[in-house]
Amino acid sequence: MSESITAVLVRAAEFTASGKPRQAIDLLRPALVANPLHAEAWCRLAAAHLDAGEPDPALDAAKRALVLDGDQAWAQRLAALSLSELGRQSEAVVAARESVRRKPTDWRCQVVLSEVLAADPTTRAEAVDVAHHATRLAPTEARAFQVLGDAALRARNWGTAERAYRTALRLDPTDDDIRANLATVRRKRGGGAAGAPTATSGPLPEEVLNAAHAIAWQVASRVAALLVSGGLLLLFAGMPRPTPLLGWFSGLLVLGTLALVGRTVLFARKTQRLALYRVTRHRPKLATVTVLFAVTLLLLTAWTTALFLGATTMQPLVFAWIISLVAGSVVVLVGQGKPRR
């Protein structure tokens, strides 16, 4: 059984690394039913849930790992990240500090502590110091310098932020987020006091974009399920000839989808709301899915209107359902993209 769970962990890590956290979750859950005392598997599950934008189950999995005999520093890091995404910042800081206490030489613990400290304006100076320490522990890790840049950006320390992002980009030239943040820092540094970072101008820090991406992808999954299943029901109900009555149900499907998206935007925090508007510029897969769903809603709206005017065609509905099915397939098969753990 040990070989079996080891193989599962390797495959789950590969899924997470390739941006497919949902597949990792589906693989780990049955393995944990058979191996409920395997701490590393619970940590892997928590990390996958975080990358899928699900902090609640991530926190539950991290807590299970904490009571087992495993890597307590890793479990504390995962708990800290989950608590931070849930808005429980004071608890997140406690968990992050505990992870550092358990493994003071692990740069990843320092990075997580810096991330959660940077969320509070009163501890941003400390966040920069902690991130500096992480870069000394891991001078070849782009992520450590990226987090230093993020913390310095929030603290309006333009010089430190620019140097950190330049180093991170040198270590990882393919990261577009680092490149965008470096451009932001250079612009704001050149503008002096007038270039102070605001929530309404310039590219947003990576952690904000990552959080918005996770939220948007989770909503995209729900929209896909709603449009694919609802469209299929309309196809069956409209055969062989749709009636104006069917337009009411089609209209409810459109309104329900808009309400789902609107509720997410309405209840998001101010910074997250702005990031949700901008995240498609940085995430082409999410942008593609968004366009496909928008076309689906436009076709459904046009078909609903046509039904009320006496039309009896099914073609717009067929096209809308096919497009929503394609978008849903992208959501399921592609996953969120770059993992963060």
Rank of each mutant, 00 (worst) to 15 (best):
V111G: 01
T174Q: 11
A142Q: 05
L9A: 05
T313H: 05
R22P: 07
A194P: 05
M314I: 01
R170I: 03
V279T: 03
L307V: 01
A134M: 04
A17R: 13
S18P: 10
R108L: 02
L171G: 10
A183T: 09
D150S: 00
Q218S: 13
I178A: 07
D177K: 10
L204V: 05
R163L: 07
T6H: 11
L204F: 14
L274V: 14
C43Q: 07
R77K: 09
A119T: 14
G149Y: 13
R269Y: 03
R186V: 10
A125Y: 03
H38T: 06
K338T: 13
G149D: 10
R88L: 00
I215T: 14
W158S: 04
V219R: 13
K285S: 14
M1G: 12
T264Q: 10
G19R: 08
R263I: 06
F308D: 10
G70L: 05
G190L: 06
A7N: 14
V67K: 15
T198Y: 04
A58C: 11
E3W: 07
A131M: 02
L50P: 04
W303E: 01
D172Q: 13
R241M: 09
S82A: 14
R77Q: 15
L32P: 03
A320R: 00
D176T: 09
L226S: 12
K20N: 15
A80I: 00
D71N: 15
H132I: 04
A211C: 10
E54L: 04
R283G: 04
A194R: 13
A183W: 08
P104T: 11
Y165P: 04
A47T: 03
R283E: 14
T123A: 14
N181W: 06
A134E: 02
M1W: 00
P139C: 02
L37D: 13
V100Q: 05
A214G: 04
T312L: 05
L252Q: 12
P36W: 02
P104I: 02
R189C: 01
G251S: 15
V100S: 04
L253Y: 07
F308I: 07
E3N: 09
E162G: 06
F267D: 07
P197H: 09
H38L: 03
C109M: 00
S114D: 04
S250D: 15
S2T: 13
I5C: 01
T257P: 12
E3A: 12
P197A: 12
Q72A: 15
L232T: 13
A275Y: 08
M239Y: 11
L274E: 11
R44I: 00
V228C: 07
Q336L: 01
Q336C: 02
K285A: 12
Q89N: 14
S84D: 08
R189H: 14
L83K: 11
T160M: 03
N35I: 00
M239N: 10
L252D: 12
A287D: 11
A214E: 09
A17P: 09
A199H: 11
R273H: 05
I5F: 08
D120W: 10
A12Q: 09
T16Q: 12
L86T: 10
S90C: 06
K285T: 15
D60R: 13
R154F: 04
V261M: 10
V185Q: 06
A61E: 09
C109I: 00
T167D: 09
V147M: 00
L245W: 13
P57D: 08
P284T: 08
G247D: 12
A151N: 00
S18E: 10
F319C: 01
L234I: 09
P240N: 05
A168Q: 01
V10W: 03
A127D: 05
G256H: 14
P30E: 00
